[in-house]
Simulated assay, not measured.
Amino acid sequence: MYQRYVKVKGTARERGYQFGVQMKEQIITNYINQTEYYKNKEQFDYKKWEKMAERYVPMIEKWAPEVLEEMRGLAEGAEMEFDQILALTTAYEKSFARDQVSDKCTAFLAAPCATKDGKVIVGQTNDECFREWLYQLDVVVHHQEGKKEVLTYTHPGIPAYMGINNDGLCIMWTYIDNGVTGNGVPTNVIIRHLLELKTVDEAIKYLQEVPHDIPNQFSVADSSGKIACVECFPNRVYVKSDDVYLVHTNHNLFAEDEEEYTCSLTTVDRYEVMNKQVKENIGNIDVELAKEFFRSHERFPNSICSHPYPEKPWNKTLATMVFDLTEGEMHIAFGNACETPFNSYKFEHYYEK
């Protein structure tokens, strides 16, 4: 029923407007669901967050002005108030203190020497509460501005969640937590801006300079074969690169000086299972094997492929993504990889390094 793929063209404002027009029902549904979710969960009036989130506008304008324009166009196209789109865009900042960040996503990055055909293959799950985010609404947005193209996966109404651009740069992210919050740029604005850059080095430089509002780990890779995990906290940024592979879940791996504020067995289990899978398949990893990594139910309920269980009946894998940076392809299953087929998306023009 709902569109899973939309194409938008032009300037940031124009692309945002087209996204809003084409995704109007899905965006409004996402917004209404957020308001009902927090009203039922904790009697929280979502309108309060809309006003509180206004503090982010100056930061967005300074560090990602094109994303702000995209957001304004999105509000116009969907015939919504800008504050409503701002509230959706900053949803993760709102939920951070309320959420169990260690029960989220699993990512891996494989450099050319780790793959079957010398490609760059990376991937990640998106594990969340399906009451808070209706995964049936999720979408891939294909942005085009001149020769520049970006493929993003996102919840409608949010600029970007993960993605790849036709310069060969891929951005993924996982929650982490050292107990420190700041006054910085919202997570999904950072992600959308990163996808306008060209290389891992450019992405790392931006992540080292931009003020971070909440802790996050960004997994970055480009088609040259460079891969890195960047653990970003409001007080410090840690960078880990590797020539073979990297794995990340929801606990701090490289920030040795930072306190582990929230941690649970699930993030450790998922890390160990994914790390084992990748390590045992060095030299044989391709897109199809990467999809198999994400179908793993080892150590359920703390498995990579996440399903509801009695203690957490609302959590599951909402989407599973595998990116082939050498070919410029995005493969996505809108749900659990064990039961949902993957769709593939490509660029019209891809600039392999």
Rank of each mutant, 00 (worst) to 15 (best):
V57R: 03
N284I: 06
D242F: 01
K104S: 09
K94G: 02
F300S: 06
E231N: 01
T125N: 08
I121K: 05
T115S: 04
H251N: 08
E231Q: 00
M274A: 03
E42P: 01
A12C: 08
M23R: 04
V139G: 07
Q217K: 11
A75Y: 04
R4A: 05
I176Y: 07
R55F: 12
N166V: 11
K198V: 02
V268H: 06
E50P: 00
I227H: 03
D286Q: 10
E292L: 10
I32K: 14
N275H: 13
E76S: 11
V322L: 04
N178D: 14
A333R: 00
T115E: 08
N315L: 12
Y345D: 00
Q144V: 13
V185W: 00
Q3S: 14
M23K: 05
R236Y: 09
E132A: 12
V239E: 03
E196G: 12
Y245L: 06
Y56V: 08
S306N: 11
D286K: 08
K9G: 03
V21G: 06
V67T: 09
K147P: 12
D201I: 00
I121V: 15
D269S: 13
L169I: 11
Q43M: 11
F293A: 02
E288R: 09
H143D: 14
E329S: 12
M71Y: 07
F293P: 00
A255P: 07
D167Q: 13
S264T: 08
K276D: 03
I190D: 02
I164T: 07
D324Q: 10
I158D: 04
I332F: 04
I285M: 07
D222R: 11
I191W: 02
G123E: 06
H251P: 05
W49F: 10
S296R: 01
I304G: 00
E311C: 00
A91V: 14
R55H: 10
K226G: 04
V239Y: 04
H331S: 01
N250P: 04
D324I: 07
W49E: 03
E61Q: 15
Y37E: 08
L137H: 14
A12W: 09
E256Y: 15
Q18R: 09
L318T: 06
K41C: 09
V57K: 05
T199R: 08
Y56D: 10
I85N: 09
K24L: 09
V141H: 05
Q208V: 00
T266R: 14
T199D: 05
Q84K: 15
D222Q: 11
T115R: 03
D222S: 09
V244Q: 06
F323L: 15
K279A: 12
I60Y: 00
G10K: 08
F218D: 01
G73R: 01
